[in-house]
Amino acid sequence: MTILSEFEYTRPKSLKEALKILAKEKGAIPLSGGTDIVPLLKDGRIVCTTIVDLKNIKRMDEIGLSRDKKYIVIGSLVTFSELIKSKLIQKHFPVLMEMAKTVASVAVRNRATLAGNICSAVPSMDSGSLLMALEANIHVESLKGKRVVSINKWFKAPRKTVLKRGEIVTSISLPLINKNKYAGAYLKLGRYQGEDLAQVSLTILSLPEKSYRIAFGAVSPIPIRASIIEKKFQGKDITEELLQEAKVCLEKIISPISDVRASEEYRMHMAKVMMERGLEVVKKRYHGEGPEYGVTHL
């Protein structure tokens, strides 16, 4: 497939230079891994005047602790492969590694970035539910200044976020949790065990004092946190009865669609099954018994 649209390519050496180009040119778009943008260009589904390749910008490819040591900061050029390899991620957010391992396949993960994933914001994206559950913050910069957006407010609609023209995501920060006293699980439903898009994805965290965070992907236009269910579970043992109640509740929270990959009915059913299984996994992991991080659960 040939890219038919006309545009320029530039690779600025600094963030400032990149921001200047984006401010000046309405049709300029930033590029990190390109695994989503390049096929879209080929399909003619996006048109731009300039591709602003961010890969020469220094320090945006780093993973580190924030100065106050309260956050892990993931630069916007960090790829999924780098997340999988990172000792820091493995230590603090092994569930992020678990998610990253389900993204496409090695050669795509070597290129695709976490920041790119949330900027593309396709409903089937892998990272959405995870970042919701980890209560991530998105750090955005433009010539006008910096701002921080909570992941809860980031997504607007399929392929739409609050990112404005002229802005670049510089990093994603994840608040550290309770001295890592928590367990997490990421579950992805695909038709295949190999590379496939998510039909349903789910992140569950089990925190001290019987507190939970539960977020879903691919079952609503944007990733969604199941706060009502989290409240139901808060401080309680999850009995069969409570679980059934939560499943009924889920029907009002998520709004899956039917497409060529799965029907609405199956997605709804599987969201329930996955919630039940995810809870099992985090329960075990919380007590140090569960399967090691990075395995698939379905």
């Binding site: 690779r11 390109g34 070597n110």
Partner: peptide, 13 residues
């Protein structure tokens, strides 16, 4: 040294 899919990369990159 890392695998990539060359159809997803612009030559300029």
């Amino acid at each position: 040294g890392d695998t990539v899919k060359s159809c997803l990369i612009l030559a300029n990159e």
